[in-house]
Simulated assay, not measured.
Amino acid sequence: MSDPEKLVDEIEALGRRLAEARASIATRIIGQGQVVDLSLAALLSGGHALLMGLPGLGKTLLVDTLSTVMGLTAARIQFTPDLMPADILGSEVLET
């Protein structure tokens, strides 16, 4: 097992890095602290998030900013009514 003091130091370091990430995001996304926190929570927990809102509220900007701050890549998909999940993820065809 790890030394408890070392574990506490690692947790505090992660907390500082998360605070830095929030501060970096706050320079581009203003007044949406709860949305930023929930998006970070979904990202860090390995979950999914559905961002819904009217046009022009900064959803794409938030995702682009999150990907930049976290060192990831982001791609935007414009959905249409006829778009199916298999169109994005691909599909597997089983041949017998």
Rank of each mutant, 00 (worst) to 15 (best):
S2I: 12
S2V: 12
D3A: 05
D3R: 04
D3S: 05
D3Y: 02
P4R: 03
E5D: 10
E5F: 05
V8S: 13
D9V: 11
D9L: 15
D9M: 14
D9I: 10
E10G: 02
E10F: 06
A13D: 12
A13V: 05
A13F: 06
A13K: 13
A13R: 13
L14P: 02
L14D: 06
R17M: 04
R17K: 11
L18H: 12
A19N: 09
R22Q: 14
R22S: 11
R22F: 12
A23T: 01
S24Y: 00
S24Q: 06
S24A: 07
I25K: 00
A26D: 15
T27R: 14
R28N: 07
Q32Y: 03
Q32F: 02
G33C: 08
Q34G: 10
Q34N: 15
V35M: 09
V35W: 02
V35A: 15
V36M: 02
V36A: 01
D37M: 04
D37E: 13
L38A: 14
S39G: 10
L40K: 08
L40R: 09
L43I: 12
L43N: 06
L44M: 13
L44A: 10
L44P: 04
L44E: 07
S45Q: 04
S45V: 06
G46Q: 01
G46S: 04
G46K: 04
L51C: 09
L51Q: 03
L51E: 03
L51W: 03
L54Y: 14
P55R: 14
P55N: 14
G56F: 02
L57Q: 05
L57C: 14
L57R: 07
K59C: 11
K59Y: 12
K59E: 11
V63K: 04
V63E: 06
V63S: 05
V63M: 09
D64S: 15
T65M: 03
S67R: 00
S67K: 01
V69D: 04
G71E: 09
A74H: 13
A75K: 15
R76C: 04
R76P: 03
R76E: 10
I77L: 15
I77V: 15
Q78R: 12
F79A: 14
F79G: 12
P81L: 07
P81T: 07
P81V: 08
L83Y: 07
M84E: 06
P85A: 02
P85L: 02
A86W: 01
D87Y: 02
I88W: 05
L89Y: 08
L89Q: 10
L89P: 02
L89N: 10
G90K: 06
S91H: 07
S91W: 00
S91A: 04
E92K: 11
E92C: 14
E92V: 15
V93C: 01
E95Y: 10
T96M: 12
